[in-house]
Amino acid sequence: MNNRLLIIEDNPQNIYMMHFLLEKNGFEVIEAMTGPDGIEKAVRYQPRAILLDIQLPEMDGYAIAAELLRRPETAGIPIIAVTSYAMSGDREKILAAGATGYIEKPINPDTFVQEMMQYLPGLPNDEKEQT
């Protein structure tokens, strides 16, 4: 299984931070700054998981999640929402929209990678927490 992750996010600094942390932990990272670009890259690169921002201009995270689930090529890829929608209720909303997991912004560099890994399927090592 590949070690590729796709980040869909429009803030360059956030992309850089996640990219940096994931790469340091041995992942290969692909970036997309818009929904259509992200969907296209998800189809092409078949990542192990997609880290998805919700507050994006034009096509938002809910619409992207719906489209990814609709397409047979991407329907099986776990979606992990990464968003600063810290209000109660938003967690339920994005999980209902089809996301596998939810990581809250601001991301904590100390725990981000671990938080992300618990949503990855078929992780061979014992770092994975059963959810």
């Binding site: 803030n11 600094q13 956030n14 931070m17 991301i107 560099p109 100390d110």
Partner: peptide
């Protein structure tokens, strides 16, 4: 408040990364 938080989170995050000595 929301707009202020975004850049601030970036400052906190990168400071954390530097302190982890990952860089």
């Amino acid at each position: 408040s929301h707009e202020l938080r975004t850049p601030l989170n970036s400052i906190i995050g990168f400071t954390g990364i530097l302190l982890q000595q990952l860089a």
